[in-house]
Amino acid sequence: MMTPKIIFFAAVSAAILAVILLAVVSPLPRKSQGTQSRSWTALSLYMQPPRLQNLTEATVHANSAFIFQHKLTEGPKNTSRVIGKARGFIVPIEHLALSAFNTIYLTFDTPEYSGSLSVEVKQVGHGTREELTVVGGTGSFAFARGLAVLAAERPSQAEAAYHLTLRLRFPGESGAIPG
């Protein structure tokens, strides 16, 4: 049986390894994008939660990490075109009310964008809308910074999509994030 400390250190070690691997093996930005002047990139997409087979898949046990993977789609319907994945993990402190470590990795594989974004949850709220911080990226999103807003599409439905709006800026560009 693994102790809570071992689980915590394994989760943190996995996160560090994922960041290092993403930095080493991420694709370079396409030349056409590298020569263009980009001030702000705004993206609107949807995170589709997986269909759970039973309740035990969604249960978070004490002293464990909650790991998730959702599809990223262009539209709010589960049948919309898939453009990537959202993966992340949460190390809960008090039944997900607080968390010591929340990270979401967004990976994209489309003709327009190829790469990933790292999004950090600074403070867990209890509403239907969360503001997150984009802390970096790879590939088409190399060194991106910005804001991500995550909102429940239909808060009353358990398996509803989450609307994710990204506002990104890139190195060498100044200005505030448009509101």
Rank of each mutant, 00 (worst) to 15 (best):
V24R: 12
A18H: 12
R81L: 08
L22K: 09
I20C: 08
T73Y: 07
P29D: 04
G75R: 03
F68T: 00
A11T: 15
V12G: 00
I16H: 04
H61F: 12
T56S: 15
L45N: 06
S44D: 13
R38K: 11
S39E: 13
T35D: 12
I20G: 07
P29L: 05
N63H: 04
R38Q: 12
G75Y: 02
S64H: 09
F66Y: 13
I67K: 08
A15N: 13
A11R: 09
Q48T: 08
S13V: 07
P27R: 10
T35I: 13
M47N: 04
T73P: 04
L22I: 03
E57Q: 15
S13C: 11
S26Q: 08
L43T: 01
E74Y: 03
N78K: 12
P50I: 02
V19K: 08
F9G: 05
A62H: 12
A18I: 09
T35K: 15
F9K: 10
H61T: 11
K31C: 04
V19T: 09
W40G: 06
K77C: 07
F66Q: 00
Q33S: 14
A11N: 13
A65H: 03
A11P: 04
S32P: 00
Q53W: 06
L72M: 06
G75M: 01
A62S: 06
V12K: 13
V24S: 07
S13I: 05
L45G: 03
K71F: 05
S26K: 03
F66T: 01
I16T: 13
A65V: 07
M47L: 06
Q33A: 10
L17N: 05
G34T: 07
A11C: 07
S37E: 12
P50S: 00
L52A: 15
H70W: 09
S39Q: 12
K77V: 08
H61N: 11
P49G: 03
R30A: 15
K71C: 02
L21N: 11
H70E: 09
S80I: 02
A65F: 04
F68P: 01
Q69C: 02
V24I: 15
T79N: 09
P49F: 02
K77M: 11
K31P: 15
A65Y: 02
S80C: 03
A15G: 08
S13K: 02
A23T: 10
L45P: 03
T56E: 14
S64I: 00
Q69E: 12
N78T: 12
L72E: 00
P49A: 01
Q69R: 15
S80G: 05
A23Q: 14
F68R: 00
A42M: 09
N63K: 03
F66S: 03
Y46C: 07
L52V: 09
K71Q: 11
T41M: 13
S64Q: 10
N78I: 06
Q53S: 09
I20E: 02
L45F: 01
A10Y: 06
W40E: 04
Q33K: 13
G34A: 14
S32D: 14
A65D: 02
A14D: 09
V24L: 15
T35M: 10
V24D: 06
I20F: 13
V12Q: 04
E74P: 02
L28G: 07
H61P: 02
W40H: 13
R30M: 08
N78C: 01
A23S: 14
E57N: 07
T79I: 07
Q48L: 06
L45K: 02
I67S: 10
R51A: 03
T73M: 03
S80A: 15
I20M: 12
E57G: 07
L55Q: 10
L28N: 06
